[in-house]
Design a protein around this nucleic acid. Structure first.
Lengths: 235, 235
DNA sequence: TTCGTAGAACGAACAGCGTTCGACAGGAGG
DNA sequence: CCTCCTGTCGAACGCTGTTCGTTCTACGAA
């Protein structure tokens, strides 16, 4: 999001149009700053500077920083497409949808953090995503009074996984320290006597990178198997 | 955490002992401020003021604000006791442990947020908790290479649920706005034409308070049922 | 065409944050 | 008694989100 080229001299007579800022421009700028430099760089001053204006100008189009966050999340989540629910394949469809949502949330680091902090998804894009997930769940045989709970827990887990995964990614700066910590934990565990934290010591070799995509996929499988066990009909 | 009473006059001769600040005092003060006024009140300045000193004095005992957060989380989590693993009752034990951990994380609002932001649990108290969970999982019949993933996903879900639940609690100030939002969503859904977000509209009545404890317990049941389905032996 | 006005744009200012740093002081050891 | 060393202190730095009074443009009415 570079500043636009200055107008050529022969256009200097035309007054620059007053109305340059829109909510959409602000959200797009914020998203590009986020994906380029991480969450800490997304400040009102930074976005305003990127748009060649002052920080106060943004507040005519955006109520709050929290509202800006919601709009960013909405714009990012709008790209996931929800499939037509197929009662024969609800398990595959559910897994695919969760993987896709997690992919989008992880792809731009920082979006998952916003998703986690936004307590209730109010914006249209997220409502659409939630509706698609409920659509699949509703043709799975799970009793109606459990579907809300199932959707809640799936959305929560997808968001939480994406958040944790995004902490391991590059421009946040925490990534290096995280890996260093992981090594230190390994050494610390090995230095302990055998009767302390025995299970962690036994499992130490199996935890290479914290929360891995494999773990997430396994969690989805466990979820869906458990859901199928709670459904009356099990296709 | 009030300031201590001034010394009586007959003790004025005694010089005030030099060493008043300890890491433990700081952590305790921070926890009491947190539980009294919510996460936003936990600032270095506020804690220092509570201890009648300046903000810079804390940095002799605590490296960072992040380290202080970790120490707070550790102190809060130390109260959960892990049971002796019993292969006959691993399902009940697992559920009880998760409920207990979630209870502690939810009890002091703001602790769950810290737990979510702390990428890897490094402190002893949390390692003990994780070890206890792994101990139960290891006698469940789940293959060893899945146990790490299972522990990861359980811990992640417990933390994420506690975080979301703590957003609905009182002194954070977001609670009122959250409930208002929820009502607005209901109205918004009813105002939509029938072919938009049909599943959300159908489920609208079943989502009273967002993430409820019932949903969490249901999620635990689903988890454990799925884990049992992935175990070789199913006691 | 001219004028009035609504409202966007602006940037300075405010209160607060985490953290750093140099100066200070008091107990311990020679 | 003097010296050192370490915990303490408060001012200061650079940053944050947000507010506010002013400026100025674009548009509708006369």
């Amino acid at each position: 999001m570079n500043a636009p080229l200055p107008p050529p001299p022969w256009r200097r007579a035309t007054r620059t149009p007053r109305r340059q800022l829109t909510t959409e421009t602000i959200v797009d700028t914020a998203l590009s700053v986020l994906s380029a430099e991480g969450p800490d760089a997304v400040t009102m001053r930074r976005i305003a500077h990127e748009l060649d204006t002052g920080p106060g100008s943004l507040y005519a189009h955006v109520q709050d920083k929290r509202e800006l966050h919601e709009l960013m999340l909405d714009a990012a989540m709008r790209v996931v497409e929800t499939p037509e629910p197929d009662p024969q394949n609800w398990r595959t469809q559910l897994k695919q949808l969760c993987l896709e949502q997690a992919r989008v949330l992880t792809e731009t680091p920082g979006i998952a953090q916003i998703a986690m902090e936004t307590l209730i998804p109010t914006t249209p894009g997220i409502l659409v995503a939630m509706d698609g997930m409920l659509g699949i769940l509703r043709c799975s045989g799970i009793p109606d009074d459990r579907i809300a709970a199932a959707g809640d827990m799936l959305a929560l887990h997808v968001t939480a996984y994406a958040y944790e995964a995004s902490l391991w990614q590059s421009p946040s700066g925490q990534s290096d320290e995280a890996h260093r910590r992981l090594g230190q934990i390994g050494d610390y565990l090995q230095s302990l006597p055998a009767d302390q934290l025995p299970n962690l010591k036994a499992m130490n070799h199996a935890m290479p990178h914290g929360t891995e995509p494999d773990h997430f996929e396994f969690a989805l499988d466990v979820f869906i198997a458990g859901l199928a066990a709670h459904a009356d009909v099990r296709p």
